[in-house]
């Protein structure tokens, strides 16, 4: 019993001397939410990070493929196979990139977007519809050329609409890479 008392006394003495040794994080009075370890958030952050990295790489690939599609576009005639192939590959990469961005998990503690992220998202309102409508019109215009007809109305403007979309898309990529 004496031994036990001695051990308890020594333990409490060593504990007290350790506590008195210095300051600890508890002394600073942070909120519990500030110091809380959140495993669910770790998973969410890792998934978000992976998806946004994939978004970055597929978007860069889409830009390269779309540049090729623009360079291989002919004027007022049936599209070359290379233009069609690069256009389809570019569109696939573009929509894959877009889906990574849309599906990346948001944090619960959502803070409003700031800085160039705001412009990155705003530009999507231009390039997303333009890169949906432009290539569709291009496909329809090409069908007309194949039949030996001249495209009319909106079909004539497919190149202009797609180019606007491409410029907005490139600008959107620049907002994330260069400091303005």
């Amino acid at each position: 019993m004496k031994r036990l008392n001695l051990i308890i006394a020594l333990l409490s003495l060593s504990f007290n001397s350790f506590a008195a040794e210095g300051l600890s994080l508890d002394d600073l009075g942070f909120n519990a939410s500030d110091v809380k370890v959140d495993k669910a958030l770790t998973e969410k952050l890792e998934k978000r990070n992976w998806m946004l990295k994939a978004h970055q790489y597929t978007a860069l690939g889409a830009l390269a493929l779309m540049s090729g599609a623009i360079l291989t576009a002919g004027e007022h005639k049936q599209a070359k196979d290379s233009h069609v192939a690069l256009g389809i590959a570019g569109a696939t990469a573009y929509y894959t990139a877009a889906s990574f961005a849309f599906l990346a998990p948001e944090l619960d503690e959502k803070t409003p977007a700031r800085g160039m992220t705001v412009w990155h998202r705003r530009l999507a309102w231009i390039h997303f519809p333009a890169l949906l409508i432009g290539p569709t019109l291009g496909y329809l215009a090409n069908q007309k050329y194949k039949k030996g007809q001249e495209p009319t109305g909106m079909l004539k403007n497919h190149a202009a609409i797609t180019t606007i979309g491409f410029i907005a898309f490139a600008a959107s990529a620049l907002t994330m890479t260069i400091e303005f």
Partner: peptide, 29 residues
Amino acid sequence: AAPVKSFTSKDSNRDTNMLTYTKASDFPM
């Protein structure tokens, strides 16, 4: 001491990314 999440730059997306790289959800301070 400062919470890792309290560091803010001009770009909100960059700040969220930093939480991942600095393992802020496991080591918040």
